[in-house]
Every structure is written in structure tokens, then in C-alpha cells.
Amino acid sequence: MSSALTDLFPHPIVQAPMAGGVSVPRLAAAVAEAGGLGFLAAGYKTADGMYQEIKQLRSLTSHPFGVNLFMPQPEYPGASTGSTGAAGAALPYRAAVDVYAHQLAGEATWYETELGDPDSGREDGYDAKLSVLLDNPVPVASFHFGIPAPEILDSLRRAGTFTLVTATTVEEALAVERAGADAVIAQGVEAGGHQGTHRDLPENDGASVGLLSLVAQIRETVSLPIVAAGGLMRGSQIAAALAAGASAAQLGTAFLATPESGAHLLHKQALTNPLFTRTELTRAFSGRPARGLVNRFMREHGPYAPAAYPEIHHLTSPLRKKAAASGDPQGMALWAGQGHRMARELPAGQLVEVLVAELASARTALSSGGDLR
């Protein structure tokens, strides 16, 4: 790992930025205080909301932390520009959104709410959030769903911010390196939540690569430091990722069950609930591939959900919120990685300590030719 990042936190453990209210300041602070790198998730927040969370986090810890931004999304092929009138709206992707909305009408009736407006915006306040980060620099910034322009990465670097960008393939990692990021987050198919693919092409569904293979391939191709992400729940798994060529490991689901996490209680309980036995990648809730616990909503609507992010995210948002408010996990987006059954309900700081001890034990076993367990 680059010394610029190594100097920021003593343990090679990064708490993943989980949007939707999970990665709150108290969670990031607890991880940072324990020697890991805590992260805030700016996705789905306003620029001011992000700024307020940064201020709160700085009041809780003096240790370095990171902030994650979602990249603005380009329109899908065939999207209407609005200049062709009513006929122009009946284009493939837009029509698919309308058909899916019709399919979800029964869900809206069931939860006694309205569907959201699919045209609520594609930018996620990106420019305003960048302005905040340039005016009030944070130690680390990461980006999901694409790569910032080289001049933006350079501006953040000059402001003293270390930059990371998610990649799900070797080709994406090469693009991250060319753009001038300081490190790449290698996200394997095992990861919970949204896959950070740079271009969401439906024909690539099912082509994602496992974490260890991805890390090894990127390590042989790209000179950037690698942060491994995807299904990591134990120190022995972190040791394996580091042995494959990563410099640090990013864990999300492992921290989701901690008391500091802002995840809904039903979401935390579902991780180890025997009712939810497996995860799948689905477009059902957002229109982009994301891994979550298989529930009723995913089973009934996943096969029909179109590739249309963030339109589908906006469309289903009221349904998901109403399901949570009514205590129904079968209608919630229960994002989780493949290792969800290994979740431990430990305080975040204690979890970091346990992971560090497990990592040290695994490294000792690995160096002596013993068992990694």
C-alpha cells in the first residue's frame, strides 16, 4: 500500500461506506478509533447532509476517515432527451421503466403508499458534494459507479485527499489507474450492495469475478495499491486477500450488524435469520445489480426489473421505506454479502480488534505452513 494511505490508519481494515443510512458517523468514528478506516456514505444525501455528517464525525474522532460519493449516471441507450414529444417517450428503456411501475402498482396498494418519481435525478448532487470536499478536505474520498475526471482527482490530491475508485474488472482498474486515482478498490462478486461497475450493461449480468481472482488479476496488471472488497467477514479471509495482492480489506456486511450501524433492526436480524438463507444479485430495488438477501420482493420482481438506475431506485424508494416502517423485511432491500451468516453482533471497535487478532493469527499460520483457520 502507498505510504500515504498506510500512514492514515494502522490496521489494514476499511469499513465500507454503505448508503441508505447505514454508515453513520458513530460507526465510522468507532472504526477509526480502533485503528481502521471509517467511512461515511454520501450517496442519496444532499451536499449539506453530507457536510453535517462530516462535522459530526470530526467531533467524535480526530483520526482519519473517508467519504464515498456516487458518480452521476449517464442515460441508458435509447433514453429520451425530452425533445421528441410524447412519441419520443416510448423508447425501449423508458418503456421498460413504465412497465415495471405498472407491475409494482400492487405493491403500492399493499403498502398504502405511492410509487416514487423515477425522474427524481441522476446526479445525486455530485458537483455540490465535490465542492464541499474541495472546500473542506477530508483525508480519503472514494467513488462508486464510475471514475471522476482526472482534473478532479488531481484537485482532490492537491487538497490533501487520498482517492480510491471501485473497479469490478481488470479493465476498469486500468481505467482507474489512467485517470490518476491513488488506489483501486477491487470489488468481487461476493460483495453486498451495489456492484460498482462503471458501465451497467445488462449483457454483462452474471459475468462478475470472485474477489481473490480479481485481486490477483489486478495485481498483475495495475501498479496501484489495492483495497479488496467482497464477502470478507473474518481475519483469515483478510489474510487471504492480502496474500493475493491487496494492501487492505474493505468490509461492509461485517459492520452492518454492529450496534453503531444505522441499519434498520430488521435488516440486522435478517443477516442471521434462518428465513433468509442466501443472497442474489438483483435489479429489483434499484435497476442496478446489487446483492441482497433473497426475500419476497426480490423473488417476485427481480426477473422483470429493467436496467434503469437510478430510475428504479427512485420508483421503489417509498415502498422500501413503508415496508421498513411496517416491520416487513419481505419488502425491504436487505443488502448483504455472501458471508452474511458469519455476522457478529459486536461493537464496531471490538470487531476491529477481533479481526486484527484473527489476521495476525492467520498470517502466523500462513508463514509457518499451517492452517489459515
Results as ranks from 00 to 15, higher is better:
324 A>S: 14
250 Q>I: 05
194 H>I: 10
373 R>N: 11
315 L>T: 04
274 P>V: 01
99 V>H: 04
22 V>N: 06
202 P>Q: 11
309 Y>T: 03
271 L>D: 02
9 F>D: 10
242 L>Y: 06
215 V>E: 09
104 L>F: 00
143 F>G: 12
32 A>Q: 13
71 M>L: 15
260 E>K: 08
327 G>M: 07
324 A>F: 10
52 Q>C: 14
50 M>A: 12
160 G>W: 08
80 S>T: 15
6 T>K: 13
259 P>H: 13
71 M>K: 05
37 L>A: 12
304 Y>E: 10
99 V>C: 00
5 L>D: 00
280 E>Y: 00
299 R>I: 10
368 S>D: 11
51 Y>M: 09
294 V>D: 02
268 K>S: 07
124 D>Y: 03
31 V>A: 13
196 G>W: 03
358 E>Q: 13
275 L>R: 12
207 A>S: 15
270 A>I: 01
249 A>L: 07
113 T>D: 03
250 Q>K: 06
11 H>G: 01
200 D>W: 04
230 G>W: 04
218 I>T: 06
123 E>K: 03
60 L>M: 15
3 S>W: 13
307 A>V: 07
337 G>V: 13
119 D>A: 14
271 L>T: 02
212 L>Q: 13
333 A>W: 11
8 L>G: 08
330 Q>M: 08
79 A>I: 02
136 N>V: 03
273 N>E: 05
361 S>I: 01
324 A>D: 11
352 V>G: 03
66 G>E: 11
178 R>H: 09
323 A>I: 10
14 V>W: 15
149 A>C: 04
266 L>A: 08
36 G>R: 11
341 R>Y: 04
57 L>H: 05
333 A>T: 06
250 Q>V: 02
87 A>S: 07
67 V>W: 10
63 H>R: 14
127 D>M: 05
241 A>C: 13
266 L>E: 02
148 P>Y: 11
118 P>T: 06
254 A>I: 03
130 L>F: 11
79 A>C: 14
128 A>I: 01
3 S>V: 13
146 G>E: 04
245 G>Q: 02
121 G>W: 01
117 D>R: 11
55 K>Y: 00
323 A>K: 08
343 A>K: 06
289 P>Y: 15
358 E>D: 06
188 G>I: 03
362 A>Y: 06
156 L>V: 00
120 S>T: 07
319 L>G: 05
234 R>K: 13
